[in-house]
Amino acid sequence: MPRHLERINVLRGVAIMLVFSYHSLLAIFGSYEILDFGPTWLWLDFARFAPNRILISMTPWGMGAQGVTLFLVISGFLIHWGFLKSGATFRLSEFFSKRFWRIYPPYLVAVLVFSLSLGTGGPLSLLTHLTLTHNLTDRTFTTINPSFWSLALEAQLYVLYPVFLLLRRRLGIGKTTLAIGALAVLTLALEVIFQPRILAVWLSPPNLWFVWAAGAYLGEQFYHGKRIFTRSPAYLVGMYVLLSLSTVTIVYPILGRLLFSLFFICLMDWYLHRAAPATTAVGEALFRLAARVGVYSYSIYLFHQPFLYQIIHFLTSRYQHRVVDALAILGAFALFFGLAHFTYHWLEVPSVRWGKTLYARWRQAPAATAPALNS
């Protein structure tokens, strides 16, 4: 496997570990994130909250929800870079066949597992989950499995990819990305004005399309050998510090995902172009482990929540100590990593293989036709 693809897998590993740590903190501390800024509105009223709660919110794992942001950036990067690299004409049938067989069969198994073990939340919840539309209303947003909202969002962003290509052909990649960013800022501004406080609105495709498009923009620059970030890595550290400090202001809950997407494309650009440093056997082993976590990241994401809460509560119920909490999180992660090893090889890989075989047979049929869109 090319080194840059291994590095993408490492970044996937980072993304799933961020998400996993975030959900683990929710299991231990409950809803620790601070979204009520009180009378000041613009920044946190520090007198109203315990210092530990504020500090946890500013840590990388406290901001672990941004792991989903990183996943979306990586998705946009890989899909658009892969399309450009193939040099082929965009075919709707081929694109959606690949996306369906990569995502849906393992997702369907997970939906059935959680529906049978924990309940569906009602017919509407089950129907919307099966059609990947449950993220469009708060009634079904967190039912069956709270993590599944981002998978529905991802599917909807796939539907928008042909639109992205049409805009790119007319406007160019830069103006297209800026236009999608302007759409996100506009919709967020309207939501701030009308204050709906609805998850399905705040985490909607118009708001988060830019996150995916930023990854696609990076993918195009990478394909053409162009750099986005050419500064010292110290600037990345500075950017991250500023983003961490933004958690005590109204900026983070409103613009956090958009700002983090900009940070992530700079980080990815630096990491993908960084010369491989001399490393020890231990360093190479950690790199391989992180890459393997990235390979299994979809399965870990599918199956870890909400059973993660029950496992952590079981492991920590007799001993209330932070060391025990940390060991419980590590033990739970090892358990889901082991499960993901089997689901990756038994669900994900066969699903992709079946999809390729079925699509090839369909394309060989005499009557097979598919609409095409030039790049």
Rank of each mutant, 00 (worst) to 15 (best):
Y344G: 09
A367E: 11
T357L: 14
A370G: 12
A370Q: 13
S351E: 01
R353H: 14
A367C: 06
V349L: 10
W354A: 12
Y359I: 05
P371K: 01
S351Q: 00
W346H: 06
K356A: 05
K356G: 05
Y359P: 06
H345P: 08
F342Q: 07
P366M: 08
G355R: 04
K356R: 06
S351H: 03
F342E: 05
T357P: 00
R363T: 12
A360T: 15
G355Y: 01
W354G: 02
V352Y: 02
H345Y: 13
P366G: 04
H345K: 15
W354Y: 11
A360H: 14
K356Y: 04
T343A: 07
P371Y: 03
R361C: 08
L358K: 02
R353A: 15
R363P: 07
Y344E: 15
T369W: 12
A367S: 11
W354T: 11
F342W: 11
W362A: 11
W362Y: 09
Q364D: 14
Y344N: 14
T357E: 13
L347V: 01
H345Q: 15
H345D: 12
W362N: 04
E348K: 09
T369S: 15
A367K: 06
R353E: 14
W362F: 03
Y344T: 13
P366W: 07
A370E: 15
E348F: 09
T357R: 13
Y359W: 07
R363C: 13
T369F: 12
R363F: 03
A368V: 03
V349Y: 02
W362T: 07
V352T: 04
Q364P: 06
T343M: 05
E348A: 09
T369E: 15
P371F: 04
V349F: 00
V352A: 06
S351L: 00
A368N: 02
A370K: 10
W362G: 04
P350T: 01
R363L: 10
P371W: 05
A365K: 11
W354M: 12
A365Q: 13
V349R: 08
A372W: 01
K356F: 04
F342R: 07
T343L: 04
W354D: 06
E348Q: 10
T343N: 09
S351V: 02
R361Y: 07
T357H: 13
S351I: 02
H345I: 08
K356H: 02
R353C: 12
P350W: 01
A365L: 11
W346S: 07
W346C: 05
F342G: 02
S351F: 00
W346M: 07
A367H: 08
A360R: 15
W346G: 05
R361Q: 13
W354K: 08
R361D: 10
E348T: 09
Y344Q: 14
A372M: 09
T357W: 13
A372K: 11
P371L: 01
A367Y: 06
